[in-house]
Design a binder for these strands. Sequence first.
DNA 1: CAACGTTACGCTCTTCGTAAAGATG
DNA 2: CATCTTTACGAAGAGCGTAACGTTG
Lengths: 312, 312
Amino acid sequence: MKLQQLRYLNEVARQDLNITSAADALYTSQPGVSKQIQLFEEEIGLQVFLRNGKRLTGITEPGEQILSLAAKVMHQIDNIKRVGDEFSNIETGTLTIATTHTQARYKLPAVVKAFMTAYPHVKLNIHQGNPSQVAEQVAKGDADVGIATEYISDFENLLCLPCYEWNRCVVVPHGHPLLLDGALTLEKLAAYPLITYDFGYTGGSLVSKTFSEAGVSPNVVLTAIDADVIKTYVTLGLGVGLLANMAYDPERDSNLAMVDVSHLFPNSTTYLGVRKDAFLRGYMYGFIELMAPKFNRKAVNEALKISGTSSL
Amino acid sequence: MKLQQLRYLNEVARQDLNITSAADALYTSQPGVSKQIQLFEEEIGLQVFLRNGKRLTGITEPGEQILSLAAKVMHQIDNIKRVGDEFSNIETGTLTIATTHTQARYKLPAVVKAFMTAYPHVKLNIHQGNPSQVAEQVAKGDADVGIATEYISDFENLLCLPCYEWNRCVVVPHGHPLLLDGALTLEKLAAYPLITYDFGYTGGSLVSKTFSEAGVSPNVVLTAIDADVIKTYVTLGLGVGLLANMAYDPERDSNLAMVDVSHLFPNSTTYLGVRKDAFLRGYMYGFIELMAPKFNRKAVNEALKISGTSSL
DNA sequence: CAACGTTACGCTCTTCGTAAAGATG
DNA sequence: CATCTTTACGAAGAGCGTAACGTTG
């Protein structure tokens, strides 16, 4: 059995059982991939892939398990390489962050700036997606850390660290009747067309839950994943915007008025997630600490130790 | 990076940094191992082993991490092979049990007999050791399951399933004064020379704890890991034997009298341990169920799911 | 000087890429 | 007939074993 074979298997599974595109992705020849997979299946003594004649049509039951194990092996091989990088090229490498739009746009800039100053030789990638995509990317090892609200703890092999709590505000054009009508309630809010986050995005489901538990039906006329989009439509007079506190900037958004509604909704917690079995580079600990100061290197290791089987 | 290199690294570490004996154990040439380790270190960009000139004298700090990861990789490679075996040669293979003498001698025979009838093509190995050796063998993957009392749950990556509870009895030659003196107490027991298990073995530490909590000092004149040895010395009149209930067989041990002392000591629980990240062959589930009937395949998988990161 | 690790070298087996052939839908 | 996989073959390369050399204690 060769590592190459496991790598090939993985990539074929990734590429929807298309050997040709797997070969392309691996920068090698297609017959080579085909051959190694045959050799692997011969050595193991069973088929990983179901075939209809020559086409791959599916994955066998044992194949599923083998692919899952192969993915773990490849991940640990990556970890081994990282150990090398960590100890030789101190503080150079890549940090891939998966996060939602809200975090990327309003919370991360300050953190990223501090990070880039502290680790100028680390290349940064930011992947954007909804919370479950964020979690999935981290779980698969496509991202080193994920930052999102809710959902992220669904995956068994992720360690979730609470970073900070936040709440919501309402934005309206200046002179809007809501501004004149005393303290805001869910009922008053529901009287106006509402523009807010997609459910399934940053704290979206918590909002709908709060409304429904209060027996109030909000009139959501438009949803977006993007606070800037929401503000744009509010500016056009299409409705009242409900978004994260941190997404309102008094200077930049001077054409809108803001009303805090923390008293109407429970706080949402933003979590940072890492794979329990990942080898964390020094600068990754650094990033985590910038994001959630109480989680220094020691605290993260402690959390990893408690949570998982990971016996690094 | 090659799997072979990881295998070599592992074996060298196992053989106390002796490349020559590692090569022997791997049935290959010594220069080959030497070369591959050099190539690996070159590729990774750091040394795994500390050298004094040409001798290996230790493991570097990153080396420790790499070796740990390499061990995991090799274990998962074994798992992959097992998947193959499981689905092709149904119910043939090997089951290695690590356990203490008491279990092997008094509890396992019935289970093993049933197992061999159910899975006649599975080869059985029984490794004997003290409870911490048992746990270590399972943790390292040298044994598939471990059976012992206490201690076994110290390892992070072991799943422990409670099998059954048991308690102790006292054995003495017929006509011994203890038999005439009414209900037994710790004090009365302490008045006679005591022969019992090594502390650190089957429930031994629980016995000493019970005595010390009662403020009683037992007069332990001889300890052994082996109930048969204990009984032999009791027969010779050297003292009173304190051993596991199940170790007294009224027929075979007709030359000794037995007094139950369950009321003096708390029950001990015997656990069965498996690695959380092991791929369990069908017959291994079978063995576990024979040993602890409430843990059928489904229950074991459930326990694995709850306990670990293991996302098979 | 005995035990151990590294270097040197030649052989063999593997792997990889190109080209061609065979299947599938 | 376009797409995809397998087979065939030759060249390049990697791994292994023997033998010789260099070090360590």
